[in-house]
Amino acid sequence: MYVTQLSALRNYWYVIARSGDSTPKSVRLFGQDYVLWQSEGGEPVLTQPFCPHRGADLATAAIVVDKLICPYHGWQFDINGRCTAIPQLDPGLPIPPKAKLATWPVIEKYGLYWTCVGRPAVPGPPAWLEADELQWEIHVDFFEPWNASAFRIIDNNLDQSHPAFVHQNTFGNPNAPLVPKYELHRTTMGFRSRIPQQVGGVGPQMGIVDEDRSFSRIQEAELLGPLHTRIRLEYGGSPPDYCFYSTATPVDDTHSIYIRCSALAGDSTSQPYELFHSYSRRVVDEDRLVLEATNADFPIDIKSEVHLRCDLTTLEYRKVLARIDRTDVGQASTKLGDAPGDLRQTSP
């Protein structure tokens, strides 16, 4: 299945820009074009890409206070899409009712702008425990275009067996490919798993230069939404923990924007961000190399692939997408997953 074929995905929230990016700017989502702009007061809005008068590209428009000014004929639009002024209109005549722009809501959260171009199934982006409640130090690590399906990016975030081979130049060990047994717990919006791991090479993510040191940790992997994940790495309090909050914005079937934010439990001395980010760059590049060569047609029929014991998270991800596919796309109450419950790891 391609991302544009799963219509219900449009009912969720996706990152379209970093907070503070200059606007107006072109945005592409599910193969359709939009324009993001914000008033001088900072209120953002997403609109249709072309002026309803003669089709000018509004990404090249000017912004004057709280108005978007069409570069072709100077028509003015407010953040609600209403045309407020037409320079060529004869005095005394009303503005034509069709002189307006379609608009979509934009929310600013975690240093990012998010939008929903469907009928919102949820009121906003998935909540992030480490940022919202624990108040860890937050960074937007990566915001970059990838030539990969958004499904493949999220599936990779949840995959437990690829690090041994994909990340063997950072923290993976091809001589230890077996994944410990683990359980999976369904949540209202997806699922969560806790997986014990023994890893080396990850010292820089905790402020430790020595990449040969080995650590025992628990990886908590959670699906927060159809294209949203949370991965927390727990080290028992020393060294400090960290958490990745990731999403893949579906530009179209074969292109995505990969976004990853990090929350660090340590301070700038115990967990220096520059060291953390430099190491993260190496890890992410390893993922990207593989994912940009994967098939964008992502199977959600679990009978179409071979599954192993270690694939519990990625198998459940396919089941989640299949359940979404079976829902009524028009229902704003669309939810991921079933009632919470424990799923024990068994052979598929």
Score class of each variant (00 low, 15 high):
Gln48Val: 11
Gln48Phe: 07
Pro49Gln: 06
Pro49Cys: 04
Phe50Met: 05
Cys51Lys: 00
Cys51Gln: 00
Pro52His: 12
Pro52Glu: 11
Pro52Cys: 08
His53Ser: 08
His53Arg: 07
Arg54His: 02
Gly55Ile: 00
Gly55Lys: 00
Gly55Thr: 00
Gly55Tyr: 01
Ala56Thr: 04
Asp57Phe: 08
Asp57Thr: 11
Asp57Leu: 10
Leu58Asn: 09
Leu58Asp: 03
Leu58Cys: 04
Ala59Leu: 02
Ala59Glu: 12
Ala59Gly: 11
Thr60Lys: 14
Ala61Phe: 01
Ala61Lys: 03
Ala61Glu: 09
Ala61Met: 00
Ala62Ser: 11
Ala62Leu: 04
Ile63Glu: 03
Val64Glu: 15
Val64Trp: 04
Val65Cys: 11
Val65Phe: 08
Val65Ser: 14
Val65Gln: 14
Asp66Thr: 03
Asp66His: 09
Lys67Trp: 09
Leu68Pro: 07
Leu68His: 07
Ile69Met: 12
Ile69Glu: 10
Ile69Ser: 09
Ile69Gln: 14
Pro71Gln: 13
Tyr72Val: 00
Tyr72Phe: 15
His73Ala: 07
His73Lys: 05
Gly74His: 05
Trp75Asn: 10
Gln76Glu: 15
Gln76Ile: 05
Phe77Thr: 01
Phe77Gly: 02
Asp78Gln: 04
Ile79His: 12
Ile79Ala: 13
Asn80Val: 03
Asn80Glu: 13
Gly81His: 05
Gly81Gln: 04
Gly81Ala: 01
Cys83Asn: 15
Cys83Asp: 14
Thr84Cys: 15
Thr84Asp: 13
Ala85Phe: 15
Ile86Arg: 04
Pro87Gln: 07
Gln88Gly: 05
Gln88Arg: 14
Gln88Trp: 12
Gln88Ser: 14
Leu89Glu: 12
Asp90Gly: 09
Pro91Trp: 02
Pro91Arg: 14
Pro91Thr: 12
Gly92Asp: 10
Gly92Ala: 12
Leu93Pro: 01
Pro94Val: 02
Pro94Phe: 04
Ile95Asn: 00
Ile95Phe: 01
Pro96Met: 01
Pro96Ser: 00
Pro97Arg: 11
Lys98Pro: 01
Ala99Tyr: 01
Ala99Arg: 01
Ala99Met: 06
Ala99Asn: 03
Lys100Leu: 02
Lys100Asp: 07
Lys100Gln: 12
Leu101Pro: 14
Leu101Phe: 05
Ala102Gly: 12
Ala102Phe: 09
Ala102Val: 13
Thr103Asp: 12
Thr103Ser: 07
Thr103Lys: 07
Trp104Arg: 09
Trp104Val: 05
Pro105Cys: 03
Val106Cys: 12
Val106His: 06
Val106Gly: 08
Ile107Tyr: 07
Ile107His: 14
Glu108Met: 08
Lys109Glu: 10
Lys109Cys: 02
Lys109Trp: 03
Tyr110Asp: 02
Tyr110His: 06
Gly111Ile: 05
